[in-house]
């Protein structure tokens, strides 16, 4: 799957919602469960800039294609945050810059050390570490796409579902970039494959778990992915990861999500 960064950049735009019938949020109100999940998603989208930070400390940012993609991607994610904030505002839930700041301040030292660790690893291990970032980015985008798709299907709402589909379509383009980059780098280097497999297997956590309360993460995972349909979606995205070079047999999503009391069938015997 090739990815044309120039045409991506030319067609990159903030997601729009002005044409959707937001009055339907009054006539067909969203459930409390959905509002809580949307708040979580909204915070994650606004915090993308923190993830951008981790990507920029490694040598990849000097590459032209990466530079163009990062710029557009970061802006699209910001607009996802704005779109979801506009939905939440219909229910009197405000997401403003100060609250976002408070969430980032809470991260404290763990967060302060993150760029340090990233830059030491990134600059010493160099190109092979970029493969880790790209694979990690692909994993995040696949899971985000799955989350939006699930919520759209669960709600069947005349305004929310199309909005989530629009956001999901942009996330699909992000996935294409990350997966293309990851595949190219993993194919080239055994060290990259070993390192990426190790990091994904040991360290991957659901997007947003580092910026949210554990009970909110529990809620979102159960709301979106509980039951057999949820498990099927999780296995579908695990299969995407497993198709990356050197990642055969990995089940990072199922492993990370299962502990959240998901009411899933027992795991397949290994």
């Amino acid at each position: 799957m090739a990815f044309d960064v120039d045409s991506y950049a030319e067609t990159s735009m903030g997601v729009t919602w002005q044409d959707l019938d937001f009055d339907s949020f009054g006539s067909q109100p969203l459930s409390q469960d959905t509002l809580r999940t949307l708040s979580y998603m909204c915070a994650v989208e606004y915090h993308t800039v923190c993830y951008l930070r981790d990507l920029l400390v490694t040598p990849s940012h000097k590459e032209r294609d990466v530079n163009a993609f990062m710029t557009m991607w970061n802006r699209e994610e910001y607009w996802h945050g704005e779109a979801l904030a506009a939905v939440l505002a219909r229910y009197g839930i405000t997401v403003d810059y100060d609250e976002l700041k408070a969430a980032r301040v809470k991260l404290e030292w763990r967060d302060k050390l993150a760029p340090l660790k990233q830059s030491i690893l990134g600059n010493i291990i160099g190109d092979d570490f970029v493969a880790v970032h790209m694979s990690w980015g692909a994993a995040n985008e696949w899971s985000a796409t799955a989350a939006y798709r699930r919520l759209a299907a669960l709600e069947q709402h005349p305004a929310l579902s199309p909005l989530l589909q629009r956001i999901g379509q942009q996330e699909t383009r992000h996935t294409a970039f990350y997966a293309t980059q990851a595949r190219k780098r993993l194919e080239k280097s055994k060290m990259a494959r070993t390192l990426t497999r190790l990091v994904l297997a040991k360290a991957w956590r659901p997007v947003g778990s580092s910026i949210s309360e554990p009970e909110d993460l529990d809620h979102v995972m159960r709301h979106l992915f509980s039951g057999p349909d949820g498990l099927a979606e999780i296995r579908r995205i695990d299969a995407n990861i497993a198709k990356l070079p050197g990642m055969e047999g990995l089940t990072i999503f199922e492993t990370a999500v299962r502990p959240h009391d998901m009411r899933w069938p027992a795991p397949d015997p290994a």
């Binding site: 606004y46 923190c50 951008l52 930070r53 100060d98 976002l100 700041k101 980032r104 760029p115």
Partner: peptide, 9 residues
């Protein structure tokens, strides 16, 4: 972004 500036949303 590696500095506290990244926290100011």
């Amino acid at each position: 972004l590696v500095t506290p500036t990244h926290k100011d949303a």
